[in-house]
């Protein structure tokens, strides 16, 4: 029971830390305020995720991706969040591509030197699993 309740909310230490970072150093935050903010944040996630999930159901899709989250944020009145997160996803995808290219370059010399002994790299398996859920079905 304890674990279930705790798992359904974000850790309060992280919530408190972000609040301290954004507010001036003279500000104090009561425990009650932190707990309340924790509940608000939890509800925010449910709110946005529910909207994105509904959209996926309408389009007969089973996977929620980043664009769905951006769409949900803009439809719920958080346009500035949607823009910022859109830019973030763009950078993230570039990073993913660079990683893939980097691994390819890294593997080539191994293949040249040891043609017969080519151990199966575990990273490929993890990456093969990643692409399917990120497919964008327009």
């Amino acid at each position: 029971m304890d674990q279930d309740v705790q798992d359904r909310a974000l850790p309060i230490a992280n919530v408190g830390r972000i609040m301290k970072q954004i507010l001036p150093p003279s500000a104090k935050i009561s425990k009650e305020g932190k707990q309340l903010m924790q509940e608000c944040v939890t509800e925010f996630i449910s709110f946005v995720t529910g909207e994105a999930s509904d959209k996926c159901h309408k389009e007969n899709r089973k996977t929620v991706n980043g664009d769905d989250i951006c769409w949900a944020l803009s439809s719920l009145g958080f346009d500035n969040y949607a823009e910022a997160i859109g830019r973030y996803l763009h950078i993230y995808r570039q990073g993913e591509r660079e990683k893939i290219n980097h691994t390819k370059k890294y593997e080539n010399p191994q293949n040249q030197t040891q043609i017969n002994r080519a151990p199966p790299p575990p990273l490929l398996l993890s990456r093969v699993e990643n692409p399917p859920p990120t497919n964008q079905s327009g």
């Binding site: 903010m37 925010f44 996630i45 996977t63 929620v64 769905d68 989250i69 951006c70 958080f78």
Partner: peptide, 21 residues
Amino acid sequence: DMRVSQEALLAINNAVEKFLE
């Protein structure tokens, strides 16, 4: 039943941070 991609989790993580701030 709904699946969530890694991108979506990152997007939500950032959205929550901005909301909290």
